[in-house]
Design a protein around this nucleic acid. Structure first.
Length: 584
DNA sequence: CTAGGGTTAG
């Protein structure tokens, strides 16, 4: 055994090291047994480490039991206990222990305790608890501690209270690099790209040197926009700051290029990684999946396996997604079966969603519903949503109704489900049912996010909303749009007005659909670019069905390449066809 | 000298 012939001090530090290196519950228990045999079980250091390890590994029973067995619990014992639950995101246990600690006469929580408890409040719906802890921190005089404020910035930011986070950040007398990174990260995570850029510039101005986390936040801040030019600017910035080849930063950059429509650039960035890790491989598989290149994604996945990297549940999700977007049914089925047997990844609910999507899109409704019934867990909104989407494509009213009813039960506030069901009814001519669903939606006061489309030109990004007239050259844009519509009518394309929900006359519907944001962006793109340039449009919602067919026709009659990123994936239009093969 | 704490990728 490795513990013989060592001095007492060395044995304790060896044990501490062994305890720290545990990666599984089984491993932890084995080391625990050695600790018991080694008569050091009462050593406070080792006990604390075991406690935090057990709670870190999610075994709260062991953690509680062991914690109770520690004879003299000091501040560090309590902090280890609490931090373990904090890292696992188990808020209840954290607050419980914090409460018990506050009731102790001879022990007071310190700033370390507070940081752990604040971090635990970053889970959804814990704003009230977070505010209480914040108040406690103020009372205890911890607000001068940079790390406490950083944790609070992160907490408010993660819970969507960007203003509160900014007020705290702004009020800091001294800010560490982590303070800057935290405020950047929470803005980036909420798509506040302008703020991210502004903060980054201020940070440089006061002479703070960015690190890996800064660059990642900067890159993340650009994804919402998805503008290739901005990706290139940040890429240059990464070079200047000396982060080229950094795995974390480069994976993030690769993903940004892919999301900005530049699959080639993503491929190049990936190629520059000497020894890509599992996350980098997953990212490139996801990139191809996003662009609808199913077989390429599969090939890359096989390369990943050959390189000795192990896929995890995220990799498999993207792989199944790739099969689904590419309509590769048999491949998807094979990988779904292989995932636990060959790769040791047990299917989670997201994998079931992917499979329902895959089968449903392919029109294999029986198989999709059979899979749902056989799931070992309760189907969630993702699963029913996938089925509903498939019913929309294949006009399956019966199943669509069932899927929608389940969705309404799970989450009645997502207006997209109502629209989808209403569209299914309209498509099969059941107008009364369709309008019933619409009034149900209206009655519940459900409105969606307003749709918008972005397009880059010169050094600017232009934004269009439905019927937008804010552009200075609005007249020209609408004239171009009219010209396109005329050509399309001449080409004999049947327009799809059922995507308009309002109860209005057909010609008004057509007028409304003609002013969709993606069509305005398209008209603008045709106006300002030359024929050799692809037109790239970023849409915040899913592309509308009519716009999708119009893009196809325009790509043919105007001989243009049009690339649209919607909220789910990319569509590459050329010669009258879309890369999604109308599978979307 | 030594335990516990804040930001970061797919």
């Amino acid at each position: 055994m490795f513990l013989t012939n060592l001095t007492t001090h060395n044995r304790i530090s060896t044990l501490l090291h062994a305890v720290s290196s545990c990666r599984s519950l089984w491993h932890c228990q084995a080391i625990h047994a050695i600790v018991i045999k080694s008569r050091f079980i009462n050593d406070g250091f080792i006990g604390d480490r075991l406690v935090s390890l057990y709670s870190n590994l999610g075994s709260s029973d062991y953690a509680h039991k062991l914690f109770d067995e520690i004879p003299e619990k000091d501040l560090v014992s309590w902090n280890s206990f609490i931090s373990g639950f904090s890292k696992r995101g188990i808020l209840d246990f954290c607050l419980d222990a914090f409460g018990r600690m506050r009731n102790m006469a001879d022990l007071k929580p310190n700033e370390v305790t507070l940081i752990s408890v604040v971090s635990a409040c970053t889970v959804d719906g814990a704003l009230y608890e977070g505010r209480c802890i914040h108040g406690f921190g103020v009372k205890m005089g911890f607000m001068g501690e940079v790390k406490v404020v950083n944790a609070l910035i992160n907490m408010y930011g993660k819970l969507g209270m960007l203003d509160a986070a900014y007020v705290l950040f702004n009020g800091m007398r001294t800010r560490s690099l982590v303070s800057w990174n935290s405020i950047l990260a929470v803005h980036a995570q909420h798509g506040a790209s302008n703020e991210v850029m502004g903060l980054f510039i201020s940070m440089r101005r006061v002479g703070v040197k960015p690190d890996q986390a800064t660059m990642v936040a900067l890159l993340q801040g650009c994804t919402e926009l998805g503008i290739a030019k901005q990706a290139r600017v940040v890429h240059a910035c990464i070079f200047k700051c000396g982060f080229e080849g950094d795995m974390l930063v480069w994976t993030s950059l690769m993903s940004l290029y892919a999301k900005s429509g530049e699959l080639n650039a993503a491929e190049i960035v990936f190629g520059e990684l000497k020894d890509p890790d599992a996350v980098a491989w997953t990212s490139i598989v996801a990139s191809y999946a996003m662009h609808g290149c199913g077989s390429e994604a599969i090939m890359l996945f096989e390369d990943m396996i050959d390189s000795g990297n192990r896929p995890d549940h995220v990799t498999l999700t993207h792989l199944l997604n790739a099969c689904s977007h590419g309509g590769l049914v048999s491949e998807g089925r094979k990988y779904f079966e292989d995932m636990s047997r060959v790769y040791g990844v047990h299917p989670r609910i997201d994998h079931y969603s992917c499979m329902v999507d895959l089968l449903g899109r392919a029109g294999l409704m029986e198989d999709a519903i059979r899979l749902i019934r056989s799931m070992p867990m309760e189907p969630n909104a993702g699963v029913w949503g996938a089925l509903l989407g498939a019913c929309r494509i294949h006009n399956n009213v019966e199943l669509g109704k069932e899927a929608a009813e389940n969705l309404f039960m799970l989450n009645s506030s997502d207006h997209r489900n109502y629209i989808m069901l209403s569209n299914i009814y309209s498509a099969s001519g059941q107008w009364k049912d369709a309008s019933k669903i619409r009034s149900l939606m209206k009655g519940r006061h459900l409105v969606g996010n307003p749709g918008y489309s972005l397009i880059e030109h010169g050094n600017r990004v232009y934004q269009f909303t439905v019927g937008d007239q804010s552009h200075p050259d609005s007249d020209k844009i609408y004239a171009k749009l009219e010209e396109i519509v005329k050509k399309i009518d001449e080409a004999g394309l049947a327009r799809q007005t059922e995507f308009i929900l309002h109860d209005v006359a057909e010609e008004i519907k057509l007028d409304m659909i003609n002013k969709h944001s993606e069509k305005l962006a398209l008209a603008f793109g045709l106006l300002v670019t030359t024929t050799s340039m692809p037109i790239t449009i970023i849409k915040n919602l899913r592309i509308c069905g009519d716009c999708h067919s119009v893009m196809k026709v325009v790509s043919l009659i105007e001989k243009r390449i049009i690339i649209v990123r919607d909220s789910k994936r990319f569509h590459h239009f050329a010669n009258g066809i879309c890369s999604c093969k109308d599978y979307w």
